[in-house]
Design a binder for these strands. Structure first.
Length: 556
RNA sequence: GCGCCUGUAGCUCAGCGGGAUAGAGCAACGGACUUCUAAUCCGUAGGCCGCAGGUUCGAGCCCUGCCAGGCGCGCCA
């Protein structure tokens, strides 16, 4: 249990006592908070319990606070002092030695410190990237990939059963366009004079694919293509591009449990069955020769077409079927990660959840803001039209996987992100990635030396820890103690950047501590104590970087 | 025109289901390498939290209006 939870426990018990002895009339346990105050004078932890209770109890907050304080019965050795301050906050000051417990917690957790059972029994699916197989992944996809993967890691860490999924949009007009693009480029290679429409995919990768296609599949016919040819071209290009995408993601450190093809939705009649489910509940109707979903019944601004006049279903129809099928699979929560440019699509997708009669299962759509790519502060041109865009592959090759992932995860998802390629390459303090990795490598180096000197710190008796009484040591202990709470917060709010920030802070404290004090000295006990402490730091850095999907190097 | 997101230090951003005196990194300025890795550390300076109202014990956070930027508003995907 984290330190914060232990304090919350103490408060809860006090309230329980007051309730049973009749000092306070309470219906159920009120939602009080335990926070880490901004200023140290307000203690290690503070609770607003008295403020929350004042109104229902019809007594002044400070009086309630006094009651709570008297009812508190903490474990031995835990509290040094309890103050009542301000409008009625209760401030808890822990005994400094009590913080040492965190080191035992870390050791006992054996690499699983920060794990919890928050999501025990909950199945969560994270669907992310899901880029159409019509071109290589770009930087924006990279951000989505880093976010989805880190999120999945974090949720796993908090006890959720997590599955990663990639939805392959391989049906419909864009696949025809892709086929046509390949076909025309192939004709070009064969020396034919063709006009290449603006609506086709402009990138050079299509030309390369056309070359490969011709080499492997033989020449394409002259003139207008027939349907089977276009089909073959489209499938060929789609599959080739998807292979590239898989490879890129693999190299980016992202692996999916499931690659779900849109084609399956039609082959398995899932679209029809989902339609039937909607029909049954009266949320489909025919008008103007098309079939509509009554999205306005659930807050969307207009009803949406699911089958066109020409009989073809829309992209939205596939999405209805896909999500219906997802919920059939029994996930408690389905998380979709999309580019922010699709935000207008969220209400209609959310609308299908109640329309399909889905209860007790939640759909969450996370929007990721686009990435502004810079080079030395200057924007890098990114036009899909002209086919000039920076791919995830290029970024990985140029700055490295770790740097890219860390930067992607250094902002809230819905905040715009500036990604300066030159700055990302620089190994200076302008670049936060190395700051954290360096802290880990430094510690690894310390432990190498300790090993060479034959220092037996692992087997040191617990009493040596009482030698840790520097302010820097206490600060480090407190940061370590807060780590499990941060992981839980990152999981409940679905915000991996919280991990990034907390690691940067921990690394900072470590560097400062390292600079001021030697860990390995002639004082054997002190050495053991400090090594035990920084072993905890190393473990948390290692763990946290693991959640982000960033390497924790042993040397730099 | 309507909708969503964003607006916090010169720059990039945190700010934990409203909490006490708003934080970090970078840049700027001044310092520290005979040390377990200087990819580091220490210090200084820097703010009508876009603007105006409102809600309450308390607002950067919630509500309303306005201003600015981004993105969306297809029987496209």
């Amino acid at each position: 249990m984290s330190m914060k939870k232990r304090v919350a426990e103490v408060v809860a018990q006090a309230l329980e006592t007051l309730k049973t002895n009749g000092s306070l009339e309470l219906s159920g346990m009120p939602l009080f908070q335990v926070d880490i105050p901004k200023t140290p004078e307000h203690g290690d932890f503070a609770t607003n319990a008295a403020l929350v209770l004042a109104k229902p109890a019809r007594r002044p907050p400070r009086q309630v606070a006094e009651l709570i304080r008297e009812a508190i019965n903490p474990p031995p050795g835990m509290l040094a002092r309890v103050d009542i301050a301000g409008p009625g906050f209760i401030n808890f000051f822990l005994q400094e030695s009590y913080w040492l417990q965190v080191l035992a917690d870390i050791a006992a957790a054996a690499g699983r410190y920060g794990h919890s059972s928050l999501g025990a029994g909950k199945r969560v699916q994270v669907e992310f990237v899901s880029a159409n197989p019509t071109g290589p992944l770009h930087v924006g996809h990279g951000r989505g990939a880093a976010l989805g993967d880190a999120l999945a890691n974090i949720l796993t860490c908090t006890g959720h059963q997590v599955e990663r999924e990639y939805y392959i949009n391989d049906v419909g007009s864009q696949m025809r366009t892709l086929g046509l693009s390949l076909f025309l480029r192939a004709q070009e290679v064969q020396g034919e004079q063709v006009s290449f429409p603006e609506t086709c995919y402009q990138g050079d990768y299509i030309k390369e694919l056309a070359q490969e296609y011709l080499a492997g599949q033989g020449p394409v016919p002259a003139g207008e293509p027939d349907a089977p040819t276009l089909d073959a071209c489209g499938r060929y290009a789609g599959e080739a591009i998807l292979r590239e995408i898989r490879q890129d993601l693999e190299d980016f450190g992202v692996r999916f449990d499931t690659w779900y093809s849109e084609t399956r939705l039609f082959e398995n009649k899932i679209v029809d069955r989902a339609f039937a489910a909607l029909q049954e509940r009266g949320y489909l109707y025919e008008a103007e020769g098309a079939l509509w979903f009554k999205a306005t019944a659930f807050g969307d601004e207009k009803d949406r077409v699911v089958r066109r006049q020409n009989g073809a279903t829309t992209y939205f129809a596939s999405d209805i079927a896909y999500h219906w099928e997802k919920f059939q699979r029994g996930y408690d929560q389905v998380i979709d990660i999309w580019g922010a440019d699709h935000h207008g699509y969220v209400p209609r997708l959310q609308a299908i959840v109640p329309a399909l009669g889905i209860k007790d299962q939640k759909l969450t759509v996370l929007l990721v803001q686009l990435v502004s790519l810079l080079r030395e502060g200057q924007p890098v041109a990114m036009t899909t039209r002209g086919g000039t865009f920076v791919t995830l592959r290029q970024v990985m090759d140029e700055v490295g996987k770790d740097v890219a992932r860390f930067i992607f995860l250094s902002r809230r998802a819905d905040a715009h992100l500036e990604f300066d390629l030159e700055l990302a390459k620089r190994q200076t303090s302008e670049n936060p990635v190395y700051y954290v990795q360096y802290a880990h490598a430094r510690l690894a180096s310390v432990f190498r030396l300790a090993g060479e000197k034959g220092i037996a710190w692992q087997t040191a008796p617990p009493e040596v820890l009482t030698r840790l009484n520097l302010p820097e040591e206490l600060t480090v202990l407190k940061l370590l103690a807060g780590y499990p709470d941060i992981v839980e917060a990152a999981a409940t709010h679905l915000e991996p950047h919280r991990i990034t920030y907390c690691l940067t802070e921990l690394a900072g404290e470590l560097h400062s501590y390292y600079y001021k004090h030697r860990f390995i000295s002639d004082d054997q006990e002190l050495t053991q104590a400090r090594l035990l402490l920084v072993q905890g730091v190393k473990a948390v850095l290692d763990h946290g970087l693991g959640l982000l999907g960033v390497e924790a190097p042993e040397a730099m």
